[in-house]
Design a protein around this nucleic acid. Structure first.
Lengths: 216, 216
DNA sequence: ATTACTATAGCGCGAGTAG
DNA sequence: TCTACTCGCGCTATAGTAA
């Protein structure tokens, strides 16, 4: 049984705050090990300065030390980073010129109003196109698999405009969003919208490299 | 080496999202174990459906399955609960009548204005006194050790009024705050303030038991 | 370079038991 | 009751090595 696992159980028992009454036999039952092993674990943790023990009225009292708290915090922090990383995606790409399609779609009320409502900003009528660096383009699959913020399709007279999704993002600390059509063949280009004309605001020119941080 | 520990390292390597290239030798180095042990661990995790492995171009590719993700989430949730619990303190007590001191202090501008600013509510000029149940009064030590929201002392002509601290709290889902003088002998009574006259609002009478949930 | 087999070394666990 | 010692078994990690 690993020390950290034992320590975690002590923490769940409240050992981070107080001296909690706990015999080696009780701990053993909780961990599914023998009393002897639990006793040994306790001694080990005491020797390492991870917990301290006093003799209480009826049962021994155990409390986790600062050092023990530190170990738990470190472990917790690792889990936090792990799961936080799942919510973010960072990709590098270079600025390229699109073919004005993005600009066209953003003039359509059906898309524009929806984006405004769902992203909480009114998008500039144009997109910034980024060609994702070769080594990173596989990351774009993650966008396909993530649900993001749904953009509904709509009808406009004759034409049908398909649904898609978007993701809040940041480029050089500027709030923006990446938009992804639902039906799209493989592409290493992402389209970015923002309330401002990003090209001007960030002084970007074709070929400039930028990193876009996407919130999934 | 525990399976969960191995799994955590795979997650840190990005195995929650993608197939990551990883040989048993590399994993061994990261975990500080032998290549043979790492190999065995990997097979064990595969057998248990916790990870899956493909053969990649150069190195084998490893990805964590839904089941593996579930295990990590469970562990993470336990740590979350553990640390969340550290931020809260729940104590039971019975309503008693104070001696009007609380009311007096709350009429003083020096305290009243501060409380209003720091707690974001204007306190009713009176306190609700709770005698904490005998078995739980030791929990009050936690309040002494926690910093809480500082209430500065002040001078008012001749008299000096001492500093203290307070903690946002809830009683029966009503927002309130527990106030604690810095220099105080041992006491099993806590004083609670709120924007409303709690006794009336919650229809409390001496002897009624209530639970107060304190945010540390 | 890999993975992963077999055989062995060593450590951890628990039974028995003393204090 | 409790803790915690010794001792022996068995699991697990590693060494050596094949594929």
């Amino acid at each position: 049984m690993e020390n950290l696992r034992v320590l975690k159980h002590l923490a769940i028992m409240g050992g981070l705050r107080n001296f909690v009454p706990l015999s080696s036999g009780e701990l053993a039952k909780m961990l599914g090990i023998s009393q002897q092993s639990a006793s040994k674990k306790i001694l080990e943790l005491i020797d390492n300065g991870i917990i301290e023990r006093r003799l209480g009225a009826k049962k021994p009292l155990i409390k986790i030390t600062k050092k023990g708290l530190g170990l738990l915090q470190k472990e917790y922090a690792e889990y936090q980073r792990m799961f936080e990383a799942l919510k973010k995606l960072s990709v590098k790409g270079v600025v390229i010129s699109g073919m004005g399609e993005g600009r066209y779609y953003l003039t359509l009320k059906g898309y524009k109003d929806q984006l405004k409502r769902k992203l909480r900003f009114s998008p500039y009528e144009g997109t910034l196109n980024l060609r994702i660096s070769p080594g990173e383009s596989s990351k774009l699959n993650i966008l396909k698999e993530s649900s993001g913020i749904t953009i509904d399709g709509f009808q406009d007279g004759e034409r049908t405009f398909g649904p898609g999704k978007c993701f809040p993002a940041k480029i050089r600390n500027m709030d923006c969003a990446v938009i992804v059509p639902n039906r799209s063949h493989y592409s290493d280009v992402v389209e970015v919208i923002s309330k401002d004309y990003l090209r001007e605001k960030l002084k970007l020119r074709d070929g400039d490299e930028v990193e876009v941080e996407i919130r999934l």
